[in-house]
Design a protein around this nucleic acid. Structure first.
Lengths: 238, 238
DNA sequence: CGCACCTTTGAAAGGTTTCAACTTCTGTGG
DNA sequence: CCACAGAAGTTGAAACCTTTCAAAGGTGCG
């Protein structure tokens, strides 16, 4: 399979993403390459960070998906944000930071320690841009949960994931891999699994998306984005 | 009125808050005093920041309340977060940042330009701590909207405000001024004004709070916090 | 005193949850 | 290669929380 070999040889998501967020110079690239060389795997359900515990080191998420999770006393669970390949985890401006939420591997992962701040100005800028992105995603999550109905929440989140995965170079032909169960989705969307299931069927019937196995294809991302009033991400001016 | 004079002479909320978030040394204090000396007023409904427009300068909110707002195409409105006296607005790690949300004055305000980053290490640390706080509040907002019912959302938000205002030195006898209409509250909680009204009545009947005019008194903040599973804020380790 | 803004109330409609059962997958072991 | 167990997806009906719409009371200020 020629395509598979091309894909395998492509830029790693973390490089693709960071270099699009901020221009990476040669030293930054070297630091990243060295970091990636020390990648290690994690199992699904393992915790990358535990709420209330010190953050040992910042991480680069090279492959696989994770979730920032908050638990209520009675067991209700809210996924605050989803983490996809190319995302940076736990960079804080504060020394000796404490994790403000638990981060859980949703799939088997490949991660590595992030090159520390201060080693490269370009990389620091990329980290800052990455965190600015994360904040935008949080704002979007708040509006989704606060003011959108179930249908809109689903489509809006999928469009966000589409944009994010595209930034990481992981979208082909408007399709991307989504290793999420409907239950996980429901925890991210503040809904019940049953209702997510029904609304997903509606979205399929409406022709908004195709979801086969672990892969989602959006039929007309620009149109859906327009209908939901989504604007392209812009973090910096001239 | 002796009490009024004491209150008037007290530490400004911004100083109280920042010095609790990070130890402020003399230079930092001087910078803050100088900044505060150039305070200016803003009218209610004025925009401090406009989504998509460059952030001219970071601001210190000295007095009055504001809100980070997001609007949907059809006019639905979500308040992403509330800003109270002592909060810092628009400090970004990125150069030439663009506002990711609109910030609206909910009341007449007193604000001043924040001393720029880099001038004082202590102050930079305080800014970083302040931003870490903001992130925690965002996470809390997501869980509120995603997994709490109307009753819980109201009480949880009021408890958060209680904690934040206490940090700024604005709580007396478990009471604090809340210049919010029920409609504004509903925009923050992802509910309708009508429902907020009803649930507020229920909370009063249940003896959770007293709301007279613009002032709220929580009856037993620790107990309510325990019931909702709220933990004290902790940002840094040893 | 009157207008504007906020709060309160009622009744009906609507979206989402709950509970429980059933079906379809997926991976593993015989 | 099939059988099986557990996980994930699907379905139905009823209950529940929240919204909607409309109108009546309060309150403050010019």
């Amino acid at each position: 399979m020629i395509n598979a070999r091309i894909a395998a040889a492509e830029t790693p998501p973390i490089i693709a993403r960071l270099s699009r967020l901020a221009a990476l110079d040669a030293p930054a690239m070297r630091l990243l390459d060295a970091a990636i060389a020390d990648a290690y795997p994690m199992r699904a359900r393992q915790e990358l960070l535990s709420e209330g515990r010190p953050v040992e080191t910042a991480l680069l998420l090279l492959d696989g998906w994770a979730a920032r999770v908050r638990l209520l006393v009675d067991g209700r669970r809210q996924i605050v944000s989803l983490l996809v390949p190319g995302d940076v985890i736990g960079t804080s401006e504060l020394p000796d930071p404490i994790a403000t939420s638990t981060i859980l591997a949703l799939t088997p992962l490949s991660v590595c320690a992030a090159p520390p701040r201060g080693a490269s100005a370009a990389l620091d800028l990329a980290y800052a841009a990455s965190r600015a992105c994360d904040e935008v995603y949080l704002l979007a999550q708040v509006t989704r949960l606060g003011r959108m109905n179930a249908q809109e929440r689903i489509l809006d989140l999928l469009l966000e994931l589409y944009d994010r995965l595209e930034l990481a170079g992981l979208v082909r032909a408007q399709g991307f891999d989504v290793p999420l169960t409907q239950e996980t989705l429901s925890d991210a969307l503040g809904l019940t699994p049953v209702h997510v299931n029904r609304m997903l069927q509606a979205a399929r019937k409406a022709g908004d998306l195709v979801w086969t196995g672990k892969r989602i294809t959006l039929n007309d991302p620009p149109r859906s984005a327009r209908e939901l009033g989504r604007n392209p991400l812009k973090l910096r001016g001239a």
